[in-house]
Computed example of a mutant assay.
Amino acid sequence: MIHGSPCRVLIVDDSAVVRQILSEILASDPAIDVIGTAADPLLAREKIKRLAPDVITLDVEMPRMDGLAFLENLMRLHPLPVVMISSLTERGADTTLQALALGAVDFISKPRFDVARGLQGYAEEIIGKVKMAARSRVRTLARPVAPRITLDTVAPAPARSIRFRTTDRLIAIGASAGGTEALRVVLEGLPADAPAVVLTQHLPATFSTAFAERLDRHSAMSVREATDGEAVLPGHAYLPPGGKHLRVIRDGARWRCRVDDGPAVNRHKPAVDVLFRSVAESAGANAIGAILTGMGDDGARGLLELKNAGAPTLVQDETTSVVWGMPGAAFKLGATDEQVPLERIAERLMSLARG
């Protein structure tokens, strides 16, 4: 995309109604140029070659080729920023998380009923996410090569060594666009006995259970949706349940989860600022705060409160962030002195926890 020129968008959806509504919504912004639409991935493939879009909106469930299969091929052969259009169902949540793992930048939730009116209600969000996608970083999807397994290579997995044991540290992490995969990378790098982790990721309410289960599968820690009042324990990571804030409160010598159904903050529920402010108040210098990739500035002020309370803080660096909105806002606010590449964040968090 040439700086200053409109973002060129191709809309891929098997529904003529959705194609028309998305075209009208996106074309209403002078910074967006809808250059075409396609009813299925095979038509889309030809239009991508011919029209060279900056961003694609892609429905997951389409005829002739599944949206995920198309996305995987696209990110491997011709990576482009993709915003998924997904349904607000449990199955839709799992499929959307797979799409984000394959390299989609973000997603827009399609209502189950009265799609036309529902999409119009999301107009501002749709425009914002498409424009953000045009500025995001995408990478070629590398297909992993499976190792050749022989009888000599089959052996019991070594027990994970205990590298850390304390109840005196609490790690708080916030993320948004690009964060579902960034959080997976960070949690994969933490040992089973790491300090307790409390997380906030901007997601629709119906996605939280599928997301917690996905992180749990990829982590040596136990990852779960928090329940109100439960103790915060080492080796566990806690996510807010759908559409609610997560806070941490002090109860004597321990911390507990507080699930909060209060109003949205920074237009988000859950909000990173809500979590960080509670951690600053309850844990202070015993906490460690981190902001990963995300759009907007949610969490920046909360991270500053953590820093002012004596907690070490860090943000994901610009090069490895899909969107350097939230981490960039925190860095510019002076909420951290440290920018860390995604692949080193888990190691850095453990180093700070030991320090």
Rank of each mutant, 00 (worst) to 15 (best):
P53F: 00
P63L: 04
G67V: 09
D106C: 05
V17G: 01
D13Y: 02
Q120D: 06
M65P: 11
R91M: 08
A99M: 05
A39S: 13
S109V: 15
R139N: 02
A116M: 15
L151A: 12
G36R: 07
L58Q: 03
R91Y: 09
L22F: 09
A69L: 14
V145F: 10
P81V: 11
R143M: 14
L151W: 04
I56Y: 00
S87M: 12
T89K: 10
A16E: 07
Y122N: 14
I21A: 03
D40Y: 12
S28V: 07
S87A: 13
P144K: 02
V138C: 05
E90A: 14
A134N: 09
K129N: 10
A31C: 05
G67A: 08
L80T: 11
V105W: 00
A44D: 06
E72Y: 03
V12C: 01
L119S: 06
L141R: 15
E124H: 15
V34Y: 03
L10S: 00
T95R: 10
E124R: 15
K49H: 10
R135C: 08
I56S: 01
S23L: 02
G128W: 11
V12Y: 02
E125C: 07
V138K: 02
A123V: 13
L10D: 00
I32V: 11
R45S: 12
G128V: 08
G128M: 12
D54W: 07
A101Y: 03
Y122Q: 15
I127M: 13
L119F: 06
I35E: 06
